[in-house]
Write a protein that binds this DNA or RNA. Sequence first.
DNA 1: TGATTTCGTGGGAACGTTACCACGAGGCCG
DNA 2: CGGCCTCGTGGTAACGTTCCCACGAAATCA
Lengths: 348, 348
Amino acid sequence: MQRRRPTIIDVAQKAGVSKSTAGRALSGASNVTDEARERVMDAARAVGYERNDLAVGMRSGRTGLLGLVIPDITNPFWADVARGAQDRAAENGMSLLVFSSDWDHGREASHLRALRQARVDGAIINPVADNFDDLDRFGLPFVLIGSSAERFPATSSVGSDIAQAVRIGMDHLVSKGHHAPALILGPKSRIARARFLRTFHEHCVERDIDPAALPMEDGEYTVEGGHAAMKRLLARGRAGHLAVFAANDMMALGAMLAVREAGLNCPEDVSILGFDGVPASAFSWPGLTTVAKPGRGIGMRAVDCLFDEIAGRPEHGRVFMPCRLIERGSLADLSLHQPRRTAAAGRG
Amino acid sequence: MQRRRPTIIDVAQKAGVSKSTAGRALSGASNVTDEARERVMDAARAVGYERNDLAVGMRSGRTGLLGLVIPDITNPFWADVARGAQDRAAENGMSLLVFSSDWDHGREASHLRALRQARVDGAIINPVADNFDDLDRFGLPFVLIGSSAERFPATSSVGSDIAQAVRIGMDHLVSKGHHAPALILGPKSRIARARFLRTFHEHCVERDIDPAALPMEDGEYTVEGGHAAMKRLLARGRAGHLAVFAANDMMALGAMLAVREAGLNCPEDVSILGFDGVPASAFSWPGLTTVAKPGRGIGMRAVDCLFDEIAGRPEHGRVFMPCRLIERGSLADLSLHQPRRTAAAGRG
DNA sequence: TGATTTCGTGGGAACGTTACCACGAGGCCG
DNA sequence: CGGCCTCGTGGTAACGTTCCCACGAAATCA
């Protein structure tokens, strides 16, 4: 801070106009002559002027800053969301403050306060829990993201279309000859689990399958959770080929491990379908077939919705973005014949 | 922006003091009586006052904002760096603006300008290239991170200790009986490659090995790059067991694929050691033994160094943070006997 | 006791930009 | 020709906090 930076006053003096005219020219306002505008732009370049967003924000109420509060930036899904948000923000000349909440109330509250103090123009938030008091009092435009956003039906939100995802997953299992797959579910307290189950039930009803007859286990959304659930499934015994739809990729990868430990092979003996599309799923052996969530798309769309919120345009309600199937090698094809396993089939 | 937010003037009025006294009490200054301070704090609570960082920054020159410019937030290593930086910033009541440069000059320049306009207190930057003009003119305190920082020896920087990493990798290979491993290197233009090679040569000299006699291939730091390099290594023919030290985990994972395609097994026929510690390496089969870079530690340390830069304390020069070995199942143990492959050994 | 020092308080100005309004010149219309 | 309207320009004040200095009271010292 040793050297004073050039201000609009310096530009105005060099261009021979008032600071009002200089400000108008620099901000692209229409009520400036082309001749004055050019003189101002030249002067700005000559003195090395760069706008001071603090001063702009003080007077105009707009800082050009957006906030993003997600559970953990090192989680690949949330990193994708952040990437999409970054890109859309940058396209619109805005900058993104990124915070990791670790699903902790206190951290979330602290980050929300930091955003208020920084006077961000708006924020994208994956809410920690049914913690609407803090959000209600946030006092700035915001858009919710992720499954937990469903707890706040009156607010603008963006998430994956879990119903569509479960449907394409189930359809794909059926197309491969797996008509009665087992399920590995997430914890009972989680929103995503309820929605996964609901769609699964609908699918069964449409195809005259009794959902109660299908094996189901649950656990945490972790490798360990999936591993333990798969061990329990295998301990029930299996009549021929077993197909499993896991609630996320980490669980699916853990399940693959349990299969191997039981002396069985995936996909020859046990087929496994994941849900998420984390990068690691490309490197298991065989590569995991999975239904990928649109992380980056969610980030981008959330920024779009946030711009609408900031501009006071009508609310979007809840936006569900479609997922997509990534086929690799973890599902046996029982529909026609048993394909030979090749390296090409093993990688996505 | 419909409702005016409480300001220090409101707090001062409610507490019956001047705005100066209110400001001093709220900022923790010592020249306020305890009685006045308490009255001010109660008043602030009662009116719901929260500091306005824009106003603070305008007058004091400090915003409480830090910038982080990395290549890609979805890259696990850089996400770890960001996580470390976030945590350290949050511990110190500061907020982090995060940008992805995609190794693009224009993007980097644009992000640096955004940081200047936001009047951040300082920035942590993985420089895109030998682009020192922009950095020299950045005009704010900064700390460089990553290998490309080595191009700017006069500035404060934090990175992985590649020499130490190569040394523990080579020592580990030797301890497993792999005395003359092959190398899969990154592209010739990359700093990390040069340092990797230099340490490798030192290691060979210390152990009376002729480095020129060891097989080396190179490629991009990608799965495909590693896959192609390994195919070329295998095409040279091998006398017995082949051990390979790959320049990063993606290349190592690609190399594992090439081994499998050649009808060989890892680690029975070919041992592979990676470098990076990306999460996906835990899920290959067998799990990849690798030398992990301290991403999170780098992020944290960089914030510490940046605080020193901001405070005008003596420069740190270049800080190299130690890497650590993650042992999984991709290295055969030729030192004593051939261990049986078990699931426990396959996972990290 | 008087002079000096220290401490707490309050008031004004600064920070850099935009919002807002007044004014003059030029053009248009009745 | 006079009145009205539009456009471009410039000046003032606002935004919310901290920096800076002046002042009065109390304590300390010679």
